[in-house]
Amino acid sequence: MKRSRKGFYYCIPALAVICFVSVYPLLYTIVLGFFNKTLLKPQMTFAGFEQYIDLFTDGVFLKSIKNTFVWTFFSVVFQFGMGFAFAMILHQGFVRFKATFRILLMVPWVLPSIIGSSVWKWMYNADYGIINFILQTLHLIPEYKTWLSRPETAMAAVVVVNVWKMFPFVLLMIEAALQGVSKDLKEAATLDGATPVLVFRVVTWPAIASTCYSLILLLMIWTLNAFTFVYNLTLGGPAHETEVLAMFIHNKAFTEFNFGAASAASTVLFIITAVVSLVYFRFTKAKED
């Protein structure tokens, strides 16, 4: 590593693009949150915290915050839980065809989200959906259900798609981390009479813990930002049941054309994401030190 300003010159082209399409827009959003701007009144007028006060007294916005929490919590719990469990299963020494298993498991993750959501929409179809058929054949439901348009099931149905998409990623990352766990240590512990649970706690977990924490935080950030599934499966409906913050912002901006309010809500989403990101940095930094 040399110390020279030359390093910065290499970064200038990328930095210029990022400033134009990311940094400046971000600042623009934060500023716009304090101004009124709608399609009918395109001139910006200063509003102070008025739009924030409006937001936090708006039932739909509060509901979208609650939905975002539910959506993120259940998505991440199941993405991580399933990924972790199946990584442990796949990692066992006697399992053959690991490479094939890995490739097949990655399919949901590489399938474009828009495609994944179209297929799931068709599978959830109320009259001819394969999911209704399978569940009824197994006698798990008495009659076909409209999964995506019933308030009781809509959120769960969208979470299922999000879990399906992301758990393979968790699985592969944890499996890769497991390969770095020292076999000698494990054997030594087993020879000393440690139970599998104890071996896991003392040898395996310390080696993969930081990967697990990073993964959970990344999943949280990705799920907070996820938009395509909700947009394609439910558009935030029925009756705002699945309207997460990203969807709320999109509706405010591009359906109601209330850009000021949408920007204020964007700032809220950005703050939530930034807090999670800061925790993530603390973890990655702690690892390096």
Partner: peptide
């Protein structure tokens, strides 16, 4: 980590 929905309006 910046949400793209935050960038799309500006």
């Amino acid at each position: 980590m910046v949400p793209s929905v935050v960038l799309v309006i500006p």
